[in-house]
Structure formats: structure tokens, C-alpha cells
């Protein structure tokens, strides 16, 4: 028996210029903040941008962007609704605020289903907020999505970077393009992460200082785009992407 959904995925993504998976080996390093802000920053530069929250167990971009009351339109599949200028897709449309305890095989199946039925249309960028780690979602993105590239997020912590090192190694082994590494939540001068990244022959995209005011901008896109954090993301966008 053949699962026909697998064959249609790349047709669904055919009109997307660049697909960026914002990823990390570790949780809590700011992937969702960076993915959301990156999508907004690209959109504000005039690009057509989609944002997909692929963290089915713990989605959070809808909180960052204050997305409520939206639901995908049904048109020969599902069409992600627009929020803040982004085509936005997340499991929250269906799970609402309830927990979705999914095991590996279910995560894979849900990913395949969403990719098979979602009609993104033509986009310049699709930003994917990945769940942490190198598990099902990462392996599925590598398996299904041709032309995907990874933007990797770490903090200055050696613990975080140790998990990132493994992600970089996996991507290298599988010959998956890595845009580079962003060092987030920086609190003091240190070249440790930059040196480590350069040693792995991966681009160091830039650093983002810990922004104490960032939490005050949760759910307020205008405020978010005015934060120092967003300024740093915008600099990375203009210099590196």
C-alpha cells in the first residue's frame, strides 16, 4: 500500500521561494521568538511570508503574535489565514488551548497531513518554527521538504551549544543546507559560540543580546518590532538572508 499524501507535499510547496526551518537542539533558546520576528521582519521588507508553527505539543507563536479567532479557509484543501501580513498555520486551529500529547508516529502523520492539505500559494519565504531536538519533526522536514534550509538558534550556554553541535552534525551528514547559527540571549561578551560555530565551518549569523523588555511585547506585534531584540533580528535579515 502507498500513502498518496507523501507524493503531493512538494507540489504544495512548489511556489515557495525559500523555506527556513528555525531550529535548535534545545528548548527555551528563543526559536519561536526568532521565527515569529524573522517572519514579520521579512514581511515588513515587502516579501510574501508564511509562518508555520510545527511544534504540535507546545505551540507558542500564536501567543507571541496574539493570534485568536482565526480559522483556515477550506478551498480544495486548507488555506492558512492571514495574520499581521503573514500566512499563518498552526495546530492551535484544531487543538485550541488543549494539550496534544502526540507520540512519534502521530507527530509524523500529523505533519504529513498538514503538508499534504495546506495550500500556501506563492510565497517568497516560509518560516517554520520547529520543535526542539533532532526528532521526528526535524527528520520529517529533511525527508519531505526539498530545498529546506536550517537557521539554528543557540544561547551562549555550553549546554545549549552541545545540543546544537549535534544538530549541525546531523544536517552536515545528511547534506542539508544550514543558513547558519544565531546566538540568542547574550548577556556578556564572549567569543565562545562564534569560535565554536566557525570551527564547525558553519556561518555565524549574528548575536542577539538578552532583551529584558521583550516579555512586555508578548502579543503586541507593533511593540515587538520596536524591541532591541527585533532590531537585532532585522540586522541579521538585512545582512545575512
Amino acid at each position: 500500500m502507498v500513502d498518496p499524501r507523501l507524493n503531493i507535499i512538494n507540489e504544495r510547496l512548489a511556489k515557495i521561494g525559500k523555506i527556513i526551518a528555525v531550529s535548535s537542539g534545545k528548548g527555551g533558546v528563543g526559536k519561536s521568538m526568532i521565527a515569529s520576528t524573522l517572519a514579520l521582519a521579512l514581511s515588513r521588507r515587502g516579501y510574501k511570508v508564511g509562518l508555520l508553527d510545527l511544534d504540535f505539543s507546545c505551540p507558542s507563536t500564536h501567543v507571541i503574535l496574539n493570534i485568536e479567532g482565526l480559522y483556515p479557509e477550506e478551498e480544495k484543501g486548507i488555506v492558512p489565514p492571514e495574520a499581521h501580513g503573514l500566512r499563518y498555520m498552526s495546530i492551535i486551529y484544531y487543538a485550541r488551548d488543549k494539550p496534544s500529547p502526540l507520540r512519534g508516529v502521530d507527530i509524523s502523520n500529523a505533519i504529513i497531513e498538514l503538508f499534504a492539505i495546506t495550500r500556501w500559494g506563492s510565497l517568497d519565504f516560509l518560516v517554520i518554527d520547529m520543535p526542539p531536538g533532532i526528532g521526528d519533526a526535524t527528520l520529517d522536514m529533511i525527508r519531505f521538504v526539498k530545498g529546506i534550509s536550517f537557521l539554528i538558534v543557540t544561547t551562549p550556554s555550553k549546554v545549549a551549544f552541545e545540543t546544537v553541535r549535534k544538530l549541525i552534525q546531523l544536517l552536515k551528514d545528511l547534506k542539508v543546507p544550514t543558513l547558519g547559527v544565531v546566538e540568542n540571549m547574550k548577556m556578556r561578551d564572549s567569543l565562545f559560540i562564534r569560535e565554536q560555530v566557525e570551527r564547525l565551518a558553519v556561518p555565524f549569523l549574528g548575536e542577539i543580546n538578552f532583551d529584558y523588555k521583550l516579555e512586555d511585547s508578548m502579543g503586541d506585534v507593533k511593540k515587538l518590532l520596536e524591541t532591541e531584540f527585533a532590531q537585532s533580528v532585522k540586522e541579521i535579515v538585512s545582512k545575512q538572508l
Binding site: R5, I78, A116
Partner: peptide, 18 residues
């Protein structure tokens, strides 16, 4: 009309196999 998306997948896959 989510059925349409799955029908497209069936057609696309069966044509590829054929």
C-alpha cells in the same frame, strides 16, 4: 473540500506509479 486535496494526492501518486 479537504477531500479535494487528498484526491489530488491520489491522482498525482497513481500517475507517478503508472
Amino acid at each position: 473540500m479537504h477531500e479535494w486535496a487528498l484526491a489530488e494526492a491520489v491522482v498525482s501518486t497513481s500517475v507517478r506509479i503508472a
